[in-house]
Write a protein that binds this DNA or RNA. Structure first.
Ligand SMILES: [Mn+2]
Ligand SMILES: [Mn+2]
Ligand SMILES: [Mn+2]
Ligand SMILES: [Mn+2]
Lengths: 250, 250
DNA sequence: GTCGTATCTTAGGGCTACCTAAAAATGAGC
DNA sequence: GCTCATTTTTAGGTAGCCCTAAGATACGAC
């Protein structure tokens, strides 16, 4: 008689996460896919599915395909947000390679408390948005990782001063433009969200505000669905929604 | 017949960590202390002690006091380094309070791979040593955590430029001084280590080099043992050892 | 030395999360 | 509609890690 309000174990979180990822691609998950994704035997999957169903996080009946309930989706998104925030920190700030970041994030995500994740996210966004940091700052750090013999960055200061001078005026003068004008791969900072009651409601619920970092991942050929990454979530916006978000490149 | 070369479980790591901390204070640990430190019952401690003894990490015989073997101490130090590196990142960069940092670090330490920990340590030290960052940079970040409505730091740029100009000359001209001249609480960067073969050998084995950050924790009245924190380790240096380390304040 | 309390160990049980082996269901091809 | 390969489930077992209850040991007070 497991308490269905209890916290999920690390293992069950991984099952839920895997189901979410499979469902995102194929609309429904089968036990086999889950077993392969997590590197366990099919028998172990059956057990986990029963536990998740007991907690009302998935729709599950023997021999049927598996889908997430609304609560299950919400839980999975929380886990994936932690995963993505950690991974983003590991790759963009620590400069670790994709694979190590991926594995490290999936191990740590389960123990990461919500408030710490929020701070880590804010920190990662801050460093990317702050004009004092930048590519030379980051490469200075990476140099120091490989050859620790260097003294702290006396050389990088001069280049920085120049860039700062430019940034000081640019930041003030930057003209906000709708998200639809931004090229894929570019990171930008939200300046304002129009139509708060209607189109942009989802964004606001997710914690996207003035100051939040948005990364454009993909723009579909005929413009319609725009894939963006915000606060660890990957989501696709309709053209209309994207138009009501004004940003400046970071 | 548990494989004694296998990785320690998170639970056993916590036992080992607790034993190290107790032994550091009282020279030997008793089951009771461990139980209290970890919030478990004495019966659970006995089981864990048997497992640690099987792996030759502690000296244990029923009803006797518990001490660490050299291998046990080495393992415990690795765990505590991870703990301290995470905690240092949480407090000094993310600005989290002591308690949350402590708890968060102790949850995450077990899943943190060595190379990620190294990077995180390097990053934390880099930010503290880099003259581009500083108190105003950090407080700018903390402002943004509490009130996310702010645009990215247009105001902090002017103050930064002034500080940069000063730093640019200071960094070049900074005169290295022996660690013994530094006041408690001050963080500084290692410039050189003299007598590499003899006194400073321990430090070099720990990975302390030119560029490493050292924090002075405490100087005993008559000068002799100086407590410092380097790379997540708390250690005490003899006056003689400390003299052979030349540093500049960060 | 005996007593009593604090401490530690043993015995037995629950829960999670894996496994293997074997049985059952599914469904595509004929 | 039957057959057979694939997938899923059941049954039964192991290991880790915690618990309670009860028995064993240690040690200071008398
Ligand atoms: Mn995971
Ligand atoms: Mn994950
Ligand atoms: Mn821990
Ligand atoms: Mn710890």
């Amino acid at each position: 008689m497991s308490d269905q309000n209890a916290q999920l174990s690390a293992s069950l979180e991984d099952y839920l996460e895997a189901i979410f990822r499979i469902v995102s691609k194929k609309s429904a998950a089968r036990g086999r896919d889950i077993a392969k994704a997590l590197g366990v035997r099919a028998a172990s999957v059956t057990g986990a599915l029963r536990l998740l169903a007991e907690r009302k996080l998935i729709h599950y009946a023997p021999y049927e395909v598996i889908t997430l309930t609304p609560e299950g989706r919400k839980e999975a998104e929380k886990i994936i947000q932690k995963h993505e925030v950690l991974k983003g920190f590991f790759t963009t700030l620590l400069g670790l390679d994709e694979d190590m970041a991926e594995e490290g994030a999936c191990r740590l995500e389960h123990g990461l408390a919500q408030p710490i994740m929020e701070r880590l996210l804010a920190f990662t966004e801050f460093v990317q948005a702050c004009p004092r940091c930048g590519e030379d700052w980051r490469s200075q750090f990476l140099d120091r990782c490989t050859a620790r013999s260097k003294p702290p960055c006396a050389e990088c200061l001069t280049g920085c001063q120049e860039r700062l001078r430019r940034a000081a005026t640019e930041v003030k003068d930057a003209v906000p433009q709708p998200l639809t004008e931004i090229q894929p791969g570019v990171k930008c900072v939200v300046k304002s969200i129009k139509n708060r009651r209607t189109v942009a409601r989802r964004l606001i619920e997710m914690g996207v505000q003035r100051g939040t970092l948005v990364e454009i991942k993909r723009v579909a050929p005929l413009g319609d669905p725009i894939a963006v990454k915000v606060r660890g979530y990957h989501l696709s916006l309709r053209l209309e929604e994207a138009k009501s978000i004004e940003v400046v490149p970071a």
